[in-house]
Simulated assay, not measured.
Amino acid sequence: MLSDVPLDLPVRPVLPELVAALRGAGAGVLVAPPGTGKTTLAPLAVADEVPGRVLVAQPRRVAARAAARRMAALLGEPLGERIGYAVRGERRTGPRTRVEVVTTGLLVRRLHRDPELAGTGAVLLDECHERQLDADLALAFAVEARAALRPDLWLLAMSATPEADRFAALLGGGGAPAPIVRASSALHPVTRIWAPPPRPVAAPGAGPVDRGLLDHVAATVRRALRECDGDVLVFLPGAGEIGAVAGRLADLRDAVAVLPLHGRQRGADQDAALRPADRRRVVLATAVAESSLTVPGVRVVVDAGLSRVARMDLARGLGALVTVGVSRAAATQRAGRAGREAPGHVYRCWSAATHERLAAQPEPEIATADLTGFALELAAWGSPDGAGLALP
């Protein structure tokens, strides 16, 4: 399958090394920054080497659909032939499908139903560095299933950040760590522009985002359109903020396409934001566009500096979504979206001094979120306390 793709991306030179590592150890870690092609080319290389289907797990539905569509386009085929996908409520696969992209939650369901993953030759866990609860479970269950039932199953964890030693140790199953293969980045230079609000804004939390910050983000988008060429990708914490900023930019719609991109949209609306247009675009996105998606034409990123994460509200004993400041690692990934195709610019809506005080990495969900569902998943697997499982 890989031989059918003429596209030369930065990850391609290391694919023979990756395949050799998987052939020797049965498991491995691929470290490749966003934009290097790991999501689209690595599954095709693995599919050439194993019998059965290759499952690629993505943390988000929009990323699963986009990855499958990209691979199918590279092969010049419609979805449902050799490349397919399955997300909640939607599936496009066929009898010839060799690579199936699924969400991590769906992979967990399949492992519960069929721990042997009959008919599957390899499992690739993409964006495992994000440490979402379903991704942690999928990794732990797949490692145990391979050790107990399917020693022939290939397991590959793919990460956009260099901290891969922990995943290598877990995939090694208590013996020698799994091999780590690294691909270098070929991103173009991105110029940083510090653009803090002119007046203080309220700190993020469980309540709504300060309107003053949303006004400033909209003003920064207008500034970016004046000062730079190309499409603009704007990072906001949620769908509500996307709608608010879109309203503030409504007067630009005759000259610029203003498109939302978030997980609550219909698939067709999400796809529209991922296709090039005949005029400049402003894509207002949540963290779905941070690492596993490619938004074509982007030369400018405007980053509000916020993300929405799951937290356990100890006072109420319930889980909740709260707005927090972005980590430095996430800010770097967001900025890199402006340098995928050409030199770009990132407007950060905070100061350089504030940047130094940000957390280095985002907190994993297992440390902050409501773990009720997580505990039930462990119990259904037969390990209520998680003892002995390869949990990151």
Rank of each mutant, 00 (worst) to 15 (best):
V62K: 04
P95Y: 10
T40W: 01
V56F: 10
A42D: 09
Q58V: 03
V56R: 01
G94A: 11
K38G: 15
L18I: 12
E77S: 11
M71Q: 14
L79V: 13
G94T: 11
V46K: 02
A57M: 06
V46I: 13
A27L: 00
V31S: 02
R82L: 08
A64H: 05
L41K: 06
Y85N: 12
G76Y: 15
T39F: 00
E81Y: 10
L30V: 08
E90D: 15
A27D: 01
A32W: 02
P33F: 07
A25H: 15
A32E: 04
A73F: 07
L79D: 02
R53Q: 15
V50F: 01
A64T: 10
R88M: 15
D48S: 10
V87C: 04
A27E: 01
G52W: 00
V19M: 12
L55A: 05
A64K: 02
T93Q: 08
K38W: 14
K38R: 15
D48H: 08
A42Q: 04
V99I: 15
R88C: 13
D48C: 09
A67L: 10
P78V: 03
P59R: 07
A63W: 02
T97F: 05
V54Y: 04
P59V: 11
G37M: 05
A32T: 08
A72L: 15
P51A: 12
L44I: 07
